[in-house]
């Protein structure tokens, strides 16, 4: 591991100032479970590491029935699985977090880290995007909000600019039911071969709004609008569901890697989307 400077700012302003001074050449560490792996494997050689764990502004966790959920970047996966607020209002987030890694890693790893690491297979991204979550990004000079669906730009890449931090995620009040299905060989300790989040809002026996978001099948989490459209306005018969699942599979072109062949990922998209929709009924 290369040597680096280490900072532990106590406020958001302090953190952003260091980030600005370092002109982007600082790695932000929250849980550290992704960053340390990359540093140990010489993928990242940071000149400075910025420990943001003491920044209180990143620790939001509140719910308002109009605005929805504000959940700070430092919220750990463990917090997500334990928080009564999340378990009650957004159970899909608690269950998605609970499938990730291990109890020990979940105690360290954070929501912000999972998103900013921008892995195509990040388990929290599909359900959050399905919930129409918005990312709040801050820098010394500005604060902006961007739909999480637009946050990711490629594997390991996001819209975060130099000097900018992910402060929190805002999730609108839950509409309909959301499910996240993860396909992996083991029960825990696995990266998803495919992840599929589905949100279905029904009214009068018809699907009013649908979200289908896939993980691990594209460079970024993939929202399948054509699949969603095939559901909206329809009565969700098994034929309609099958059709949406098929469209979802056809609309992605995953890669083959050590975890799975591309054809298998496509097949799993179809199965998971179908089962995901069924799980919301």
């Amino acid at each position: 591991m290369n040597s680096f400077d280490h900072f532990t700012p106590a406020t958001l302003t302090e953190a952003l100032s260091i980030l600005a001074e370092r002109n982007g050449n600082a790695s932000i560490i929250a849980g550290g479970t992704d960053l340390l792996l990359r540093v140990k494997n010489h993928i990242v050689k940071p000149a400075a590491v910025l420990n943001v764990k003491r920044v209180p502004e990143l620790r939001a966790l509140s719910f308002d029935s109009n605005e929805g959920l504000r959940v700070g970047a430092l919220t750990t996966l463990r917090d997500l699985t334990r928080s009564p607020l999340i378990r009650d209002c957004y159970p899909v987030l608690a269950s998605a977090a609970g499938l990730m890694a291990s109890e020990q890693i979940r105690s360290l790893a954070t929501l912000g880290g999972n998103l900013c690491n921008a892995s195509p297979s990040a388990d929290l991204a599909p359900p959050l995007i399905a919930l129409d979550a918005v990312a709040c990004l801050v820098s010394l000079s500005s604060e902006r909000q961007i739909p999480l669906a637009e946050f990711f730009t490629g594997p390991g890449r996001s819209v975060l600019q130099k000097g900018e931090l992910l402060k929190e995620i805002i999730v609108p009040p839950p509409q309909g039911k959301t499910a996240y299905l993860k396909h992996s060989p083991r029960a825990f300790m696995d990266i998803a071969i495919v992840g599929a989040a589905v949100r279905i809002q029904q009214q009068g026996g018809k699907c009013q709004q649908a979200r289908i978001v896939l993980g691990a099948v594209a460079p970024t989490p993939l929202r399948v609008r054509s699949g969603e459209e095939s559901l909206e306005g329809q009565t969700l018969t098994s034929e309609v569901i099958r059709q949406a699942a098929k469209i979802s599979a056809e609309s992605c072109s995953p890669i083959s890697d050590v975890r799975s062949a591309a054809w298998y990922r496509k097949r799993m998209v179809e199965v998971l989307v179908r089962r995901g929709i069924e799980a919301t009924l």
Binding site: H6, G32, K40, S102
Partner: peptide
């Protein structure tokens, strides 16, 4: 040394953690 095996598990502030995946400097 990558958080996958759990042999380094200790309890920090009441929570189980893989100590290999923590910078000591972060945990003053």
């Amino acid at each position: 040394d990558s958080g996958d095996c759990g042999a380094c598990t200790v309890i920090v502030n009441g929570q189980p953690v893989t100590s290999c995946m923590m910078l000591a400097a972060d945990w003053n």
